[in-house]
Simulated scan of single mutants.
Amino acid sequence: MELPLVVGVDGSESSLQAVDWAVDEAARLGLSLRLVHASLWERYEGVDLAYDLGRPSEQQMAESIIRTSGQRARLRNPDVKVSADVLAEDPEGALLREARNATALVTGQRGRGQVADLLLGSVSLTMAAQAHCPVVVVRGSQDSRNGTHGRIVLGVGDSATGAAAIGLAFREAQTRGCALDAVRAWRCPAHETADHPLLAGDPAHYHQQEATKLLEDALRTQVREYPAVEVHRTIVEGPARRVLLDRAGDADLLVIGARRRHGHFGLQLGRVGHALLHHADCPVAVVPQRG
Rank of each mutant, 00 (worst) to 15 (best):
L33N: 06
G162A: 10
T221H: 14
L40R: 14
V223E: 15
V229G: 06
T234H: 04
L277G: 00
H191Y: 15
E237S: 10
G70K: 09
A211E: 01
R76C: 11
A194Y: 09
A228T: 15
E63M: 03
G150F: 00
R34N: 03
R242V: 08
Q289Y: 05
A160S: 12
A50I: 03
A104I: 07
M127I: 06
L219P: 12
L154K: 00
Q209K: 13
G121Y: 03
A218D: 02
D195C: 05
V115P: 09
D85S: 14
V135C: 14
T221M: 11
V156I: 00
V47C: 10
E210D: 07
G270V: 06
R259L: 06
L40V: 07
R151L: 00
L253T: 00
E172Q: 04
D250K: 01
A18T: 02
E92W: 09
A190T: 09
G167Y: 00
L276P: 05
V7G: 13
G11Y: 02
V137P: 02
L199T: 04
H274A: 02
R151W: 00
E230T: 05
G70V: 07
Q222R: 12
E98D: 05
R139Q: 02
D117Y: 10
R271K: 12
S69W: 13
D246H: 13
S12F: 01
Q60R: 11
D90M: 11
P189G: 05
H274Q: 09
A131L: 13
A228E: 15
I65L: 11
S14W: 01
A163L: 11
T148I: 09
C178K: 01
I166P: 02
A240F: 11
P134V: 01
M127D: 09
T161I: 02
L105Y: 00
Q142C: 08
L29F: 13
L87Y: 12
R260M: 10
H196N: 08
E237M: 08
A194L: 12
V243P: 03
S83M: 04
W41Y: 11
H232S: 13
A165W: 01
